[in-house]
Amino acid sequence: MPHDHHHDEPHSLLPSDPALRVKALQTILVRKGLVDPAAMEAILETYETKVGPHLGARVVARAWADPAFRARLMADANAAMLELGISGRQGEHVVAVENSARQHNMVVCTLCSCYPWPLLGIPPAWYKSDAYRKRAVREPRAVLADFGVTLPEGTAVRVWDSTAEVRYLVIPERPGGTEGWDEESLATLVTRDSMIGTGFPREAGA
């Protein structure tokens, strides 16, 4: 066995190559009737085609366009999300946090990789990386520099380390030059990273 010293860990009984390991586990689970392949495909399809950052962008765009909605979102994010039909696993307890000239918000999970799936979907690799998990709380400005982001003088950073089942959605500042834009147009400016706090929305006309 390649991992004799880990013989007490069941995974070491599987092939060590990750692709073969996953394949073996899939074979076992499907043959035993513990995983329905059609259900597994439906789950994956949900996160590949239906649930993604376009949903978070709808929430942000409505918050920009509708002050009453924004107030409801800040008071009870899950109830406000439901107005747009958005809810789900890993987003049961959402808190929206607003960026301003004085405060920039940024989200991390240093202990694992907690992420607001119903709003942003599958997390990008960098969010799950050791580098981001290690550095975001201690040197957020250096991490922002990796994204090409520099904050204006006088803006403080507040990093939200998601250590429980609360999930955070950053509401970035509405870009200038978008007066009178409808929600659909506004949503095209909202990037995934701007809702995690490692980016800004696109500029109008960019």
């Binding site: 996160y47 085609t49 240093t110 550095r135 975001a136 991490v143 990796d146």
Partner: peptide, 20 residues
């Protein structure tokens, strides 16, 4: 080992927008 917040680390590599 999972409790890594605050440690030194390498560069964070950004990714394109959208569903990864």
């Amino acid at each position: 080992p999972h409790d890594m917040g605050g440690q030194a680390g390498g560069r964070v590599e950004p990714a394109p927008d959208g569903i990864p």
